[in-house]
Amino acid sequence: MTPPPATDIRGLLDRYERPLVRYAQSIVGDLESARDVVQDAFIRYARIISGEVGGDDAMQPARTTNEAEAVSEVALDPSDTRHVEAWLFTVTRNRALDHVRKYSRIIPMPMPEERMSEEPGPDEELASSDAADWLLKLLDALTPNQREVIRLKFQNDLSYKEISDITGLTVTNVGFLLHVGLKKLRTLLREAPLDAIPIRLRTAL
C-alpha cells in the first residue's frame, strides 16, 4: 500500500492511527492514554508540516533526567513517506514514555520480575489454544526492550534502521535485542509441553 502524501492528514490518520495506538498502548498500558498520546503526535505533525512549529523541536527526545536515555534528534522530512512513519512512531514513543514517567511517580508499576512472579507465566498458560494469545504471553517473558523491538519489527514491519531511529538504540543493539529475543522465544517454545502448544506454533520448534 502506498503511503499517503505528507499533507494528507486524514490519509495518515487512516493509515497509522491503529498501529500507533497499539504501540502506545504497549508502552502506557491503558487505551485512553494511548489515544491521547497518538492524538498529540498527529497534532504535532500537522503543526510542523504547516511550518507553525519547528521540526527539530518536535523531535526532542523523551524528557528524562537520565542523559543516557536520551535519543538523538531527528528532524521531520515530509518528502520521505517512510520517514514520516518512523517520525510518527518516534514522537508517539517519546510522548508515551513521558506519560509513563509522569504517572509512574504516582502509581508504582510492578517490575517485570514481580509481575512474572504474580501472574501465570507461559508454562502455566499452556492450556490456551489461541496462538496469538499464547504468543503474547510468551512475549511477556522478554525484557521490555526486547518486546518493543519485536513489536516494531514484526507488528509494524520496520527495519533495523527505522527501529534504531525510533528507539534511539544503535542498529547493532536493535539486532542484538532481536536476536536474543527470538532465541528466547524459541527456547520457551521448546521447553513447553508439546501437547499444550497451539498447533500453529509447533512448526517453529
Binding site: A131, A132, L135, L136, I150, R151, K153, F154, Q155, D157, L182, L185, R200, L201, T203, A204
Partner: peptide, 8 residues
Amino acid sequence: AGILRETL
C-alpha cells in the same frame, strides 16, 4: 519471524 508477523 513468520509466526510473529502473522500473530502479532
